[in-house]
Simulated scan of single mutants.
Amino acid sequence: MNRIGLVNEEVKELSVQLNDLLANYQIFYMNVRGFHWNIKGDKFFELHVKFEELYNDILLKVDEIAERVLTLGESPVHSYTSYISSSEIQEVVGATDANTTVGTILDGLEVLIKKQRVLLDLSDRYGDEGTNALMSDYIREQEKLVWMYTAFMG
Rank of each mutant, 00 (worst) to 15 (best):
S136V: 08
E141P: 08
R140A: 15
Q116N: 08
I113A: 01
E74C: 07
S79P: 04
V93H: 11
E110D: 12
V69W: 01
I84E: 10
T71H: 11
G94N: 05
S87Q: 01
P76M: 09
G130F: 02
I139L: 05
T71I: 15
S136I: 06
I105N: 00
T131S: 12
L70G: 08
G127V: 05
K61M: 06
R140Y: 12
S136M: 09
E53K: 05
E53N: 09
K114R: 08
G94R: 07
A133P: 15
Q142E: 12
L122T: 01
I65V: 15
D128P: 04
S79C: 03
S75W: 14
L70F: 10
T71P: 07
G127N: 08
V49G: 04
R125A: 09
L47C: 13
D137T: 13
S75K: 13
D107E: 13
L47D: 14
H78S: 15
P76K: 06
L122I: 00
L112D: 02
K50Q: 14
V92T: 09
I105S: 02
Y126E: 10
V62P: 09
K61T: 14
T81C: 09
K61P: 15
I65R: 02
S79R: 04
E129S: 15
T104R: 09
D124H: 14
D128I: 01
Q116C: 03
R117W: 00
L106M: 03
E53H: 07
G94F: 10
E46D: 15
L70H: 11
L119C: 05
E91Q: 09
I139R: 04
E129T: 15
S86M: 09
L59R: 15
E141V: 09
R68M: 09
K61D: 07
A98M: 11
V102C: 00
D137L: 10
K115R: 03
D137H: 12
N99D: 13
L72C: 06
S79W: 01
G94I: 12
D107M: 05
G127E: 08
K115Q: 08
E53Q: 08
L54T: 13
A95E: 08
E74T: 09
S123Y: 01
V69F: 01
S79G: 04
V102S: 01
L122C: 03
L47I: 13
L106H: 04
L54G: 10
Q90S: 11
I105T: 08
D128A: 00
T131K: 01
D97P: 03
S75D: 12
